[in-house]
Amino acid sequence: MKNLIIIYLAAVLLQSCTGENKNTLPILGNRQVVEKEVNGKMVVDTVYQTIPPFSLTNQDSVVVTEKAFDGKIYVADFFFTSCNSICPIMHRNMLKIYTKYLNNKEVKFISHSIDTKYDTPSRLKRYADKLGVKGNQWEFVHGSYDAIFNQAAKNYLVTAFQDKTEPQGLVHDGWFLLVDKQKHMRGAYDGTKDDQVEKLMKDMDILLQEK
């Protein structure tokens, strides 16, 4: 009987450990260790990668900057409106997430078009309308080639480039990137896979609990 109690207690203890780990998400990206002076003393601190300020144009031809995302968690991806490979799958899934968090003031979405030549704001507007997206909780943004491709490679750490040998001339990943209120990247999920999309929604709930 005594053994049984010990085993039971051990099991409870073990479970509580795994439970705790589940409730925090890692911070992704590069990190830097810096020494700085606080109250006259040198301390070592870790600086995590953040999404730096940006300025892009959305489907309503309104400038969108990082300020629109202050105090919100958001999901970012890269696509283009005429893409018929992975984009419809990604946005069918994104629509599911969008519907779940519709009108939640703490949640936003941003889809960057990598077809910087043809996906003008008016085309993005038409696309958003037909997808059934209203208002600006989900931003579809247009920007210069450099602005968009730098954003992908340097800040969100995903692949996007032009390739003339590809049938549609553009190559990109299907990642959904989850960014927290401090603009740290906290997760990357394959937007074409149902189980990863489920995980993203669970992680968003965890992130919304964070202060």
């Binding site: 018929n84 490979s85 992975i86 419809p88 799958i89 946005h91 069918r92 629509l95 309308d129 037909k130 997808l131 059934g132």
Partner: peptide, 12 residues
């Protein structure tokens, strides 16, 4: 990819 596994399409 476009018409989906259940043939439901995507929005309009």
């Amino acid at each position: 990819n476009c018409h989906s596994k259940e043939g439901q399409g995507l929005g309009l």
